[in-house]
Structure formats: structure tokens, C-alpha cells
Design a protein around this nucleic acid. Structure first.
Lengths: 233, 233
DNA sequence: AATATAGTGTGTATTTTTTACACTAAGTAA
DNA sequence: TTACTTAGTGTAAAAAATACACACTATATT
């Protein structure tokens, strides 16, 4: 006995939730759609997966084509498969997210390969418009994911410039977690992880006492957090 | 401008990793395939998603059809989309897992709706054969997921009979985490969660001192673990 | 030169959580 | 009655989390 797979034209898609942090605000990258359905609406960068590409590769390609952002590594967080989530048919979409350093990626243009997006814009979470399709829901789940993850793994460094102050780091945490943290306890905890390198350099251009700059030590981070989360003996 | 979605015959599938605990062993539910490809191989219960059904519904239906297990709520853990994961074409599969109480579900028969599976068998993790497709990888990720999750959320109760002893619970943790735990500390911690009801009843049929039985208090559990994981002030 | 301003940077005591560790009690089997 | 097997229990020490306030320093302003 043999099963023949039905013919198919892959109708699965990827949607990307790309977080950035700029001017003290958390932002995500949205595109303005240039095609129906939802023409002229704002949406997460997302498109159909090609026949011959893996999901991870598709995510990277699609993000590039729609926003010009190149070589971004993303993680899956959830797959959305409600029957009516797309008005033209059944489309299952895999949600990917990334947190990236916004500096240098401020000006974005969709790659001129498609005309699918008019433009890509960093949008503060506070100003999010109603999004196309079920993208509000997809965004919500991505945000839950990072909020949850950051509370047990210091993942936020990806969002900051290469050199940052502890106060900047703390602000970022406060924005993601949506609550104020205690300065002394925060510093103690972050420095105790041992994944920050203190630099011989200070903040510049501020009209008050300049703060020390720090760098994130990727190697120590990897060593620390690839280990299992402990349950103890 | 308008995009027409390509026609499609949904070629996405669901694969289920169902954990059970029996005779002191962790087991998963495997089917013996009755169709090509991989006819006669062992595989995770999994099949194609229908046009008009959500992923969650598909998961439940497929599990029922292939194993006879009815009404099991499962969670997604990852979506697998490598290009060549299926020998007959591009199939993206969404991984679902559940931990269930094995008692009463020991004897399983595929529902006589399909002839896709010859039988469904609880297989100890220690005796897993090489599985069809990339199911080894899918299983591995599911196992990582529960191992990780149990270290910050006491999810293991689902695996035990309704009434259980603390020693049974501890054994289960030890099996999942693959390390010995300290009896006194384990009890202290579990009882402190406040999600166990001590019963006026003891174990029966053992040839040594009978242990107290406990029940899992779902309401208190829900109250406790829907709250955010804390970062502190 | 003096002053105002705004954020930097630091320590300690308390509480909570985690860890380490070993013996007696209770029930069954012979 | 004795031997055997698992149940059940407490305490001290260490580590982590929390609560809390003031002096310092760089710049801008007068």
C-alpha cells in the first residue's frame, strides 16, 4: 500500500517580529503593504516560503526582501494555523523573532526584488496601528516570549549598541518588563553574571556626569547559558 | 495590484510526542506505520492537516485516529521545515507534545478510520528504535522542552495517576531530569508550592510501610503559574 | 567663581531560597 | 521476634533576593 502525497504549492509563510531599542523605546519593524489583501495596511514582514528552502532560510530571505535587513538570525516562537487567518485561503505561518541592534539599521528600504512592501519602518510599541491579518496576535505572542525569556536569561544585550551603560541596560529591562527596577540590585545582579566587560571608556556628550561603558562578553554568556537550568540536588 | 494565492493541497502535518509514565519509566507513544514510505517503521503519530481544520484541532484528531487516544490537549513546541525531511515532497510539520496519565490508556488501538497505523505502542525512552523521517530529531526537541519546562514549572503531575506518593513524584522528576534528587529538599519544595492535597489515604498492596497519597490541586496550580515569572524589583 | 542640575555609583542588613546531610518510624514477610 | 524495606522528618549553612538613601561628578548657568 502506498500513499501519494498530494501536489502542492507550499502555502506556508513566515512572519517576523524584529525588536529594536532606540531613543529609550522598544520598537518593531513593520512594513506598509503594497498589495492586496490589506493593501496600504501595516503588517509584520512576512511572505510565503519557497518550495526549496528551509524555514530558517526563508525567514532570513523574506526579512531581507521586505525590509533590507540582511543576515539576521531569528528564532521560531509559534506557528499560527487558524483556518481563516488569511482571507484568500489556508495559510499557515511560522512566527520568527529577533532582537537586534538598531544603530546602523535605522534607514531601511525593502530590497527592490519585490513590490510587496512600500517601505519598512521602526514603530514604537506604544504607537502600533492595527495590523493586517492576525498580526496583532502574532506580535503579542512574540512580545510575551521575549518578556518571559528575559526574566530568566539576559538576552537584552542584542538590542543595545556595542558599548552601553548600566543605566541604559536597566532602562531596557524596565521597558520590556514594564516595571521599575532597583538600581543597586540590578547592577549587582548583572555584574554578578560575569558577562559584562567594563571598558576604560566613558559616555560622551551628556551634560552630567558620564557613566562607564560596558561591553557584552559573548563567550562567557554562551558558557553560562548553554548549561541546563538547574533544579538542584 | 493583487496577489493571487497559489492553489494548494495543504501539505503540512502534525507530529505528536505523547509522554507517559509507567512502571517507573518514561514512555512515548509510537505507531507502527502501515503505509509507504517507511512502511513497518516506528514513527511518531502524525499526519496531514486537513484544509478546514485548525492546527490544534488537527493535532487532536490525528492523535485519535492513529492511536485511539481521545480529547488530549497538546501544546506546540516547534515546527520542522527542512526541505528534504519527507522523501515524497515538501512537508512542514508542527510538533505537538502532551504529558498524560497512562493508567486507563494502556491498551490503544488506532481508530478504524484509516489503515495508516498498524498499532500504537507505549515505548520506553530507553528502548526507542530508529524512527521514520526526522522523528528522532522531533522527539529530541520535545524531550528537551519538557526537561527544560519541568525545571521551572511543576508540570509532571499530568503523568501520574490521580493519587500518588511523593516518592513516585520524585522518581518521575529524577527520570526526566536524569539525576538523583534529595528526598527532604524535594518534599519541602513540592509541599511549599501549595499545590498538593494530602489525602487521608495510603498506598495499598506494597510489602513495606505504605506511603501517604496526594492529589494535585489544579486550581491552586493555575493561580500560581499563570502569574509572571518574577524578576524582582 | 559659585551654584544649580541631573544622573552616577556605592553598602548593608534582612529575608528568602537553596543546599547539604542521617536517623527513626512503620509496615510487611519470614 | 526479627529482618527487611521504604516512609518520613529537621536543622544549620550558604547563596540569592530584596529593601533602602546619600555623596559624587561632570556639565551648564549665572
Amino acid at each position: 500500500m502506498e500513499t501519494i502525497l498530494p501536489k502542492f504549492d507550499s502555502v506556508f509563510s513566515i512572519d517576523c517580529v524584529i525588536f529594536g531599542f532606540d531613543e529609550g523605546e522598544l520598537k518593531i519593524l513593520l512594513i506598509e503593504r503594497n498589495v492586496e489583501p490589506f493593501k496600504d495596511w501595516w503588517a509584520l514582514p512576512g511572505y510565503l516560503v519557497e518550495q526549496e528552502e528551509s524555514l530558517d532560510n526563508a525567514a532570513e530571505r523574506i526579512l531581507y526582501e521586505l525590509t533590507g535587513l540582511k543576515g539576521i538570525y531569528m528564532d521560531q516562537f509559534y506557528t499560527f494555523g487558524d483556518v481563516n487567518r488569511h482571507p484568500q485561503g489556508r495559510v499557515i505561518t511560522v512566527g520568527y523573532y529577533a532582537m537586534i541592534r538598531l544603530s546602523g539599521n535605522k534607514d531601511l528600504k525593502p530590497a527592490p526584488i519585490t513590490n510587496y512592501a512600500k517601505r519598512a519602518v521602526w514603530t514604537p510599541l506604544g504607537d502600533l496601528p492595527k495590523l493586517a491579518f492576525d498580526h496583532d496576535k502574532i506580535f503579542g505572542r512574540a512580545f510575551d516570549k521575549i518578556r518571559n525569556k528575559i526574566s530568566y536569561q539576559p538576552i537584552a544585550f542584542e538590542l543595545l549598541p556595542e558599548k552601553f551603560t548600566l543605566t541604559q541596560l536597566q532602562h531596557l529591562y524596565e521597558v520590556i518588563l514594564n516595571k521599575k527596577l532597583d538600581k543597586r540590585n540590578f547592577r549587582k545582579k548583572m555584574l554578578n553574571y560575569g558577562i559584562l566587560k567594563e571598558l576604560d571608556e566613558k559616555q560622551k556628550g551628556v551634560s552630567y556626569r558620564a557613566a562607564k561603558l560596558y561591553k557584552f562578553d559573548k563567550r562567557k554568556y554562551a558558557r553560562l547559558f548553554q548549561k541546563e537550568l538547574s533544579f538542584g540536588k
